[in-house]
Computed example of a mutant assay.
Amino acid sequence: MTENPGGSLKIVELRQYTLRPGRRDELIELFEREFVESQEESGIRLLGLFRDLDRPDKFVWLRGFPDMASRTESLAAFYERHPAWKRHGPAANATMVDSDDVLLLRPVTGDLEGAPPAGEKDGVIGLTVRGFRDAGELSAQVRAFTPRTGSQHGTPLATLRTEPAANSYPRLPVREREHVFVHLVRHADEAACRAQSPTLVLAPTERSRMR
């Protein structure tokens, strides 16, 4: 399969946080106030911030990097040196039960930085995760999935696959030794999204770039 991702981001983290009951809005407010500009100042591109509509104590977000080397540098700049994390990181961590459900991915198709069509209201994002064993099975999954997108099936945003490189910033664990295919589709509303049976049904927060 020939990979042809759009945009400059070749590494993407899909992060799913389990929070203490009733504290998701508290974390989102803190995150959007203190950790958007500060991460981007560190070279991290914030792509999407979401409430999981099926799990009230889950916060899901994606961020991107040009490559693995810049990921390592940018994470160190933010978590080890940026005053915003030093000042507010403990408060953020206090809302969390688990922050280690992280997939390290690389885009295959699409552009996660692309804006929604002009004049369209916020959508709902359907995110599908499937395992694969080898390149042939991955190619088959991409081919099988693509015809179902478009028109009433939503607007495809991107397809991603596991990044095979080892995690170069072990302070932040990722789910290693897994091979997954991830597909993101934008739908007009929650009902249209659920009709396609994605793994996750996600509503963008106020400052989410992906909408």
Rank of each mutant, 00 (worst) to 15 (best):
L157W: 01
L172T: 07
A135C: 01
S197E: 12
A84W: 03
M96T: 05
S70M: 12
V36M: 15
T159D: 04
V12D: 04
K121S: 15
R33N: 12
G48W: 03
E34D: 11
V182W: 01
G7M: 08
A191H: 08
G123F: 01
R148V: 00
E37H: 12
M68S: 07
I125H: 05
R81T: 11
R175C: 05
R130S: 13
E176G: 10
L27I: 06
H82D: 15
E80D: 15
R55N: 14
S38D: 08
F35N: 05
E113P: 00
S151T: 06
G89H: 03
E34S: 11
L138R: 13
E41P: 03
R63Y: 07
G110Q: 09
E206G: 01
R20E: 13
E206R: 13
N167D: 09
T2L: 10
G150H: 05
N93Q: 12
D98N: 14
G126E: 11
Q16R: 14
S139F: 00
A135T: 05
E113R: 13
S208I: 08
G119M: 10
M210G: 02
E137C: 03
L157Q: 11
S99K: 12
P147N: 02
E26V: 11
T95I: 02
N4M: 09
T205E: 10
T18W: 05
H183Y: 00
I125R: 02
I11W: 00
T205Y: 07
L104N: 02
R143Q: 10
V185G: 04
Y79L: 08
E176S: 14
F78E: 08
G43A: 10
Q196N: 01
T72I: 12
G131W: 02
I44Y: 07
P5A: 06
H82S: 12
R63N: 08
F65T: 06
G150V: 02
L53D: 09
E34N: 12
S139K: 09
V12C: 08
R81V: 03
F145T: 10
I125M: 14
R194V: 09
H179Y: 01
N167T: 03
L62Q: 10
T72V: 15
T2P: 13
E34T: 05
E34H: 14
V182F: 02
H187V: 03
R211D: 04
Q39L: 04
K10N: 15
P83G: 05
L172V: 13
M210C: 09
E26M: 07
F181S: 12
G64A: 07
L184H: 06
K121L: 11
P83K: 02
E113T: 15
P204H: 04
L157M: 14
H82F: 02
E37C: 02
S99Q: 12
R207C: 06
L53M: 14
E3S: 13
Y17I: 04
